[in-house]
Write a protein that binds this DNA or RNA. Sequence first.
DNA 1: ATGCCTCAGCTCCTGAGA
Length: 265
Amino acid sequence: MPTRLATWNVNSLRVRLPQLWDWLALTDAEGGMDILGLQETKTEDEHFPWDDFEACEWHAVHHGQKTYNGVALLSREPLSDVVHNLPGLDDDQARVITATTQGLRVICAYFPNGQAPDSDKFAYKLRWLEALKAHLVAELQAHPRLVLMGDFNITRDDADVWDPVKLAGTIHCTDIERDAYGQLLGLGLHDAFRLFHDTPGQFSWWDYRGGAFRRNQGLRIDHVLVSDALKPLATDCSIDKRPRTFERPSDHTPVVLRLQDPAQA
DNA sequence: ATGCCTCAGCTCCTGAGA
């Protein structure tokens, strides 16, 4: 069983690879990372840095695409039964990768942004969320120990929003999106961060513009959900803000889940 | 102010992100 998992929207893996190594070096000093989900790699499979990861003893699977999207799973052990995207959804956007590793079923997802509630992209977001739900129903049935992690592009409630009045009803904050989030939880999943933290104003994303990070004007839109079977093993979930202070940061920062080692339980 | 950054790409501007 892994004890540390993380999700991070890197906003271009090519640009962010040095920051990824720097962050992993920090976590190595704290016990290391076992499984990592990346979003917005923005690269095709043939340009994915396979050799760099292999040299650092990471197994990797990637569902890539040029310019936009792209998701990867890294693990200290081999990954198997890999599924690209969402079964039943005809989608030319590379947003999901699912695999089994270290005794867990892990889904790494980059949810659609949705742009604005009256847009075609919002309608696509809702279709995509329906297909994700169906995928989760099937996966949970086959794999009780499941983690869904990624950039959800949804705030769960106003505690995840720096200015809930100003942003009421805007993208990431609509009741429709939050209801879809709630439906995922209704399948037997738990917002790991909220199991351990209930103070409002803890964010995983800050706009590049206007000194938003310095002012803590952000959103919590990156989430880790654990299944019913896994919930008792979760010991902590935290947002690591350090990479947001690096040179040339991603606008997102990693969210880390810690699981109890069953050998010590 | 449809603004403010940042990224990719048919790259010196545009579309998209959130």
